[in-house]
Simulated scan of single mutants.
Amino acid sequence: MPTPPIRQRATGRVTLADVALAAGVSPITVSRALRGERAVAPELVERVQAAAAKLGYVPDPAARALASHRSTHVAVLIPMLSNELFVTLLEAVQTSMRRAGYQTLIGVTHYDPGEEEQLLREQLMHRPAGLLVTGFDHTEATQALMARSGVPCVHLMENSPDEGVYSVGFSQSDAGADLTRHLIARGKRRIAFAAVQMDPRTLQRQAGWRAVMQAEGLFDPTLEWMNPAPSSMALGGLMFGQIMGQTPPIDAIFFCNDDLAQGALLAANRMQVAVPQRVAIVGFNDLRGSDLMLPPLTTVHTPLDRIGEEGAAMLLKLMRHEAVPERCIDVGYTVVVRQST
């Protein structure tokens, strides 16, 4: 029997009605068959699936959400995709969400609160079931949008004790302080802090470094090296050369991210600067390859996989209206001591 002519939408998209016409069944039967409902006879399921495959039918999640009043996607806002840190976090979130039947709608904010606000407005138009955001650096308008939307929201990478706020992260400032104490215990006194991008978490690490340096009577504003450019190995090498020209001499450098520290170690090898004898170098986040550097890099290990998994699990509970026993989960961190100090 020839296939009936298909009346496509103006967009060219094959509709549920088209599949129903081709299979010789009702649209509701097509919907039930494709959802795998047991009430549909096996021969009808086979016929519907064959028609859908022949026509190239792809379900419209937006239409399904409107019909069922249940969205099947979660909006995720992260600062960068070029940073391995957030790629690892996103993979953990996406794996957890897919297992639960949800898809992720990703927005990249480029560390710009204004851009984050615009992305949130766009994503809320798609009626997400839940929202995962990075940190707490939001505009007043963004905070109002999240509050008024009624969409469950979990904050990642940082924690907040505020009532009604759900978060999974760790204390960036405590981690920065502990790494600085490690350098001081190694006998270092002129400890530079090298930072880029100036995002809130970097500034929190700086605050931890500064608090310890001040408490030990070692703080000097000239030890702070701040650059608004994006983090990269190339920039780390450049900053290393600049810092090593400082007087009095620097005997340790706390880089705010591992890629900067990795670039610094490569530059030290080129410049024949002994690490850690002449200068100790530390990073943050324990990114891939840090343990393979020469010498291996001392850093702070942050459990990015667990942050993503715990954040997704918490959001799933909120979306299902289940009890959340712990609103604020502190996953902790570990100072990983290697040969660069």
Score class of each variant (00 low, 15 high):
Pro2Trp: 06
Arg7Phe: 05
Ala10Leu: 14
Leu16Gly: 07
Leu16Ser: 10
Ala23Gln: 11
Val25Arg: 07
Ser26Thr: 06
Val30Gly: 11
Ser31Gly: 05
Leu34Lys: 05
Gly36Pro: 01
Glu37Ile: 07
Ala39Arg: 08
Val40Glu: 13
Ala41Pro: 00
Ala41Thr: 02
Pro42Val: 14
Glu46Tyr: 07
Glu46Ile: 05
Arg47Asn: 10
Gln49Phe: 04
Ala53Gln: 14
Leu55Pro: 04
Leu55Val: 00
Tyr57Thr: 06
Val58Lys: 13
Pro61Lys: 00
Pro61Leu: 03
Ala62Phe: 15
Ala65Cys: 04
Ser68Lys: 12
Ser68Met: 12
Ser68Trp: 07
Ile78Pro: 05
Ile78Tyr: 01
Leu81Trp: 01
Leu85Val: 15
Leu90Ala: 12
Glu91Ala: 07
Val93Ile: 13
Gly101His: 03
Tyr102Val: 01
Tyr102His: 12
Thr104Lys: 02
Thr104Ser: 11
Leu105Met: 10
Thr109Ala: 05
Asp112Ala: 05
Asp112Pro: 01
Glu115Arg: 13
Glu116Trp: 11
His126Gly: 03
His126Pro: 00
His126Lys: 09
Pro128Cys: 05
Leu131Trp: 08
Thr134Trp: 00
Thr139Pro: 08
Glu140Val: 04
Ala141Val: 12
Ala144Trp: 04
Ala144Val: 01
Met146Tyr: 03
Arg148Ile: 04
Ser149Ile: 03
Asn159Met: 08
Asp162Phe: 11
Asp162Asn: 12
Val165His: 07
Tyr166Met: 02
Phe170Cys: 03
Phe170Trp: 10
Gln172Met: 10
Ala175Arg: 13
Gly176Tyr: 04
Ile184His: 05
Arg186Ile: 12
Lys188Leu: 04
Ile191His: 10
Phe193Tyr: 11
Ala194Ile: 07
Ala195Glu: 03
Asp199Thr: 15
Gln204Thr: 02
Trp209Tyr: 15
Trp209Glu: 12
Arg210Gly: 00
Met213Leu: 14
Phe219His: 11
Asp220Ser: 11
Asp220Gly: 06
Thr222His: 14
Leu223Glu: 09
Leu223Pro: 01
Leu223Arg: 06
Leu223Gly: 06
Glu224Ser: 09
Trp225Tyr: 05
Pro230Leu: 11
Ser231Asp: 10
Ala234His: 05
Gly236Val: 10
Gly236Ser: 00
Met239Leu: 15
Gly241Tyr: 07
Gly241Leu: 04
Ile243Gln: 05
Thr247Val: 08
Ala252Leu: 06
Ala252Gly: 13
Ile253Leu: 11
Phe254Cys: 10
Cys256Thr: 10
Cys256Phe: 08
Asn257Arg: 15
Asn257Val: 15
Ala261Met: 14
Gln262Ala: 13
Leu265Thr: 11
Ala268Tyr: 15
Gln272Tyr: 05
Val273Glu: 11
Ala274Trp: 01
Gly283Glu: 02
Arg288Phe: 14
Arg288Ala: 14
Ser290Phe: 07
Ser290Tyr: 02
Pro296Met: 12
Leu297Arg: 09
His301Cys: 12
Arg306Asp: 09
Arg306Ala: 08
Gly308Asn: 09
Ala312Ser: 13
Ala313Ser: 08
Ala313His: 01
Leu315Trp: 02
Leu316Lys: 06
Leu318Glu: 09
Met319Thr: 08
Ala323Pro: 00
Pro325Glu: 02
Gly332Cys: 13
Tyr333Gln: 08
Val336Ser: 14
Arg338Ile: 15
